[in-house]
Amino acid sequence: MNRRARIATAALVVSTALLLTACGSGGGSDSPQGKIKGADAADEKSSAGPSASAAQDGVKRPEITLPKEFQADFEGWTNSDAKLQAIMNDGREELRSEYAAVIAANPDSDAVAFYNAEAPLASARKWIKQFVVDDVTLIGKVTVSDPQVHINDTGSGVLFYCVDERKASTKNRKTGKITTTADKPENVLQYRTRLDKSAQGVWKVTSSTVVPAGCS
């Protein structure tokens, strides 16, 4: 299954999406029927500014900063359940870490490694490296919304959310050429992730699937 059918570059479009070596589960308690059971997200927008380097749980987390040229707006990213909120927080930072790594042209980003287990880390690094090869960065804005989260029977966190990339673009670092993302339904993606809590107390992504037009 494809992990990253995301923000088109001159050479990276939906038809050439990168592959995930460990896709999310396709059934059972990981598969939503409409809304995910147990989801309870408020309609608020969270800041796209620097992330906190330490959380209330005492875990030292990397600081992730996105430049003003690229915004990642998280809407409704709150939950009344503290444990579910912790899953959402780490899921949010995992996504932000990848955007930051693309912009920094750094596939070996420590922050990306911090939030990903081995298999999804390899896939994420491959996706980031493609931007480095194409010598492009990210500009514009993505909107991340409709988070749906629960804990399945095995104790894993299951987090689904939507990413609207239609206002995001890539920019060639040398020429300045901008490649816009088409205003099409397939560019509103649904992320289906599973996260497991590490010994250090971090909810790391252990599998991820991206579904183009999955939120339509």
Results as ranks from 00 to 15, higher is better:
residue 103 I to C: 01
residue 53 S to A: 14
residue 51 S to P: 00
residue 47 S to L: 01
residue 67 P to K: 01
residue 134 D to P: 07
residue 176 G to E: 04
residue 3 R to P: 14
residue 136 V to L: 04
residue 42 A to I: 06
residue 63 E to W: 14
residue 39 A to N: 01
residue 117 A to Y: 08
residue 182 A to S: 11
residue 155 G to A: 13
residue 12 L to W: 05
residue 146 D to K: 06
residue 74 F to H: 09
residue 52 A to R: 09
residue 84 L to H: 13
residue 104 A to F: 00
residue 210 V to N: 11
residue 178 I to N: 10
residue 61 R to H: 08
residue 53 S to V: 11
residue 154 T to V: 15
residue 142 V to G: 02
residue 157 G to E: 07
residue 167 K to S: 10
residue 199 A to W: 12
residue 158 V to N: 09
residue 122 A to P: 03
residue 78 T to R: 00
residue 173 R to E: 12
residue 181 T to W: 05
residue 130 Q to D: 08
residue 1 M to R: 13
residue 53 S to D: 13
residue 119 A to W: 01
residue 14 V to K: 11
residue 113 A to C: 02
residue 216 S to V: 14
residue 59 V to C: 10
residue 1 M to T: 14
residue 37 K to S: 12
residue 166 R to V: 13
residue 124 A to F: 11
residue 173 R to P: 00
residue 42 A to Q: 13
residue 180 T to P: 06
residue 178 I to C: 06
residue 103 I to H: 00
residue 40 D to Y: 05
residue 216 S to W: 12
residue 164 D to L: 04
residue 91 G to F: 02
residue 174 K to G: 10
residue 116 N to P: 11
residue 216 S to K: 12
residue 150 H to G: 12
residue 7 I to C: 03
residue 35 K to W: 10
residue 138 L to N: 01
residue 186 E to W: 06
residue 131 F to L: 01
residue 178 I to A: 12
residue 142 V to N: 02
residue 59 V to E: 10
residue 81 D to R: 02
residue 181 T to P: 03
residue 71 Q to D: 02
residue 56 Q to C: 15
residue 72 A to R: 09
residue 183 D to S: 08
residue 11 A to C: 08
residue 180 T to Y: 10
residue 175 T to C: 01
residue 124 A to L: 03
residue 13 V to N: 05
residue 124 A to T: 05
residue 129 K to E: 02
residue 22 A to E: 12
residue 181 T to H: 12
residue 44 E to L: 09
residue 105 A to L: 04
residue 132 V to L: 00
residue 107 P to G: 10
residue 107 P to W: 07
residue 178 I to H: 09
residue 213 A to K: 14
